Each structure stands twice: as structure tokens, then as C-alpha cells.
Simulated assay, not measured.
Amino acid sequence: MHSRFSSFVRTLLAATLLISTATWADSYKGPTPPAVYTQECGSCHLAFPPSLLPKASWQRVMSGLDKHYGSDASLDAATQKQIDTWLQTYGGQGKRAREDPPQDRITRSAWFERKHREVSAATFKRAAIKSPANCTACHRDAAQGDFDEDRVRIPK
């Protein structure tokens, strides 16, 4: 009886870990970003959870803000240092950030491409979406780090 109970408990624990890992993979429940990050980065696009890119990618993004994907997103030195420090502290966690994606673009990462393989290029071009980088168009709770595919609503 004891060995069957132990086996049951081990199976239950393994299942719980798998469910927890799957849930975590589609959500970011890390520390609340500093207000300056949300204000500065979130004024043009989603203030992306830092775990979506490896630390090296964040470092390159922050060092090239004068040419930030075609825009000048320059910041004063103190603000840039504060944001960069936060990104370096919390960036690159989990399976989303195993390798540096091409051009340090979240939307070009292996994780992003695998998760969105069923979404056509035409869907991303819809007026309500505009770009694969517009996470909040389909992931209503993206600003809170929730990208769970069970809550995706793709606009027509």
C-alpha cells in the first residue's frame, strides 16, 4: 500500500510541476517594472516583459536607442541606466530567451515563431493588429505579462 501511495504522490507532483511550468511559459509573473520603464518604453509599444529577450539582446537594444528599430528613442543617461539595470537584472529568463533572436527582435525569436506558427502574415497585417509586435491586439492581458493562448482573441 505504501509503495502505491508513494507512486501516486510522485505522479501527482510531476503533473503539478508540468502544469505549473506550462502556465509559467505563457505568462510573466516577475517583479513589477519600474514606472520609468512603463512610461518610457510603454509610450510607444508594450513595455515588454524582460524575460522575452536574453540579457545580451537587451544590452544591444539599450545601447542603440538613437536607432531603435527606425526611431530615435534616446533617453537621458540616468533614465537609460535605470531601465538598463532593470532589464539586465530580470532579462533572459526561461525558454523564451535561450538564444539571441535576429536583430534582437522578440518577434523573430524561436519561441515567438513557434507560438505563432499558425498565424498567417496576412493576419498580422490586419488594421486592428498592424504588426506581430502589437501583442496587446490579441493578448488582452499582455501588459500584465499574460500571453496565455487560451485567452487569445484575434481581431477580424
Rank of each mutant, 00 (worst) to 15 (best):
48 F>R: 03
120 S>G: 06
132 P>T: 10
16 T>P: 14
119 V>T: 07
78 A>C: 06
95 K>L: 14
58 W>D: 08
98 R>A: 15
111 W>I: 01
21 T>H: 09
40 E>I: 13
97 A>Y: 15
126 R>A: 12
92 G>R: 03
88 Q>S: 05
120 S>Q: 07
5 F>V: 15
101 P>S: 05
84 D>F: 15
23 T>V: 07
106 I>D: 00
107 T>P: 12
61 V>L: 13
34 P>V: 09
29 K>H: 13
128 A>I: 11
31 P>L: 03
91 G>P: 07
130 K>A: 07
66 D>M: 02
31 P>F: 08
112 F>Q: 08
44 C>G: 00
31 P>Y: 06
121 A>Q: 10
93 Q>C: 14
131 S>M: 06
74 S>V: 08
72 D>I: 02
53 L>F: 02
98 R>S: 14
26 D>M: 14
67 K>N: 13
88 Q>P: 05
43 S>P: 04
18 L>E: 08
14 A>G: 06
104 D>H: 06
108 R>N: 12
127 A>F: 08
118 E>W: 07
119 V>P: 04
65 L>D: 11
60 R>N: 02
33 P>N: 01
51 S>W: 13
35 A>S: 04
40 E>F: 11
96 R>N: 11
104 D>V: 01
129 I>V: 14
37 Y>W: 07
31 P>E: 07
77 A>M: 11
83 I>D: 00
51 S>D: 11
17 L>S: 11
9 V>Y: 06
89 T>S: 07
122 A>G: 04
74 S>E: 11
125 K>Y: 07
111 W>G: 05
57 S>K: 02
85 T>M: 09
42 G>W: 00
127 A>S: 10
37 Y>A: 00
118 E>N: 08
37 Y>S: 01
66 D>G: 10
127 A>E: 10
42 G>T: 01
37 Y>G: 01
99 E>T: 05
107 T>E: 11
28 Y>V: 05
115 K>V: 14
110 A>K: 05
27 S>E: 14
8 F>P: 10
134 N>V: 04
79 T>N: 02
53 L>E: 00
54 P>S: 02
97 A>I: 14
86 W>G: 00
111 W>A: 07
14 A>M: 09
